[in-house]
């Protein structure tokens, strides 16, 4: 089950149209444009609802993505690097989002810091190929993961707040 706020967030992210993966040349460029449009809209939505929580960018080919996500807990900001590859079978299979610096710190991860998704992620993704994109994976996968795992990791003392010189 997806909670009401995730459902609302998801429905405000524009749906994608082009079913194309990184091997599809021109169609992939079209898909990438759609990915960026959806991501920009999602980040803008987040900012306007005072819930800005990640930035992403990709290599020129759109096959490797990287960026930052952050989580506010007791008024302190905890920031993590994100990275993932677009699998050759995308968008049939979702990207495997990873937070490498947390690798080995929680059991809710696979090798390389790939986050462990809830049971409903894959069915929901499969039902919405090719309309779901990276923005949806962030909203449905990483967002809820951070909300559950980060407070728990802070509580256990596994992660500590780092003072950042630049904000």
């Amino acid at each position: 089950m997806v909670d009401e706020s995730t459902r609302k967030t998801l429905s405000s992210i524009p749906l994608l149209q082009t079913k194309a993966g990184p091997r599809d040349k021109d169609l992939w460029v079209q898909r990438l444009k759609e990915e960026y449009q959806a991501l920009i809209k999602y980040v803008q939505n987040n900012k306007s609802s005072d819930n800005d929580w990640f930035r992403l960018e990709s290599n020129k080919e759109g096959t490797k993505w990287f960026g930052k996500c952050w989580y506010i807990h007791n008024l302190l900001k905890y920031e993590f690097e994100i990275e993932f590859d677009i699998p050759v079978t995308y968008p049939t299979t979702a990207p495997e989002l990873a937070l490498p610096e947390l690798d080995g710190k929680t059991a809710k991860m696979y090798r390389g810091g790939k986050i462990c998704l809830t049971d409903h992620f894959k069915p929901l993704w499969a039902r919405n190929v090719p309309k779901f994109g990276i923005a949806h994976a962030m909203a449905l996968g990483l967002g809820p993961w951070l909300a559950v795992e980060i407070p728990d990791l802070i509580e256990k003392g596994v992660i500590a707040h780092k003072e950042k010189s630049a904000e």
Binding site: P14, L16, Q17, K33, Y36, Q37, A38
Partner: peptide, 11 residues
């Protein structure tokens, strides 16, 4: 809402 399919800004 869907993303715009053609035209619009370049990649």
């Amino acid at each position: 809402e869907q993303v715009t399919k053609s035209d619009g800004p370049s990649l």
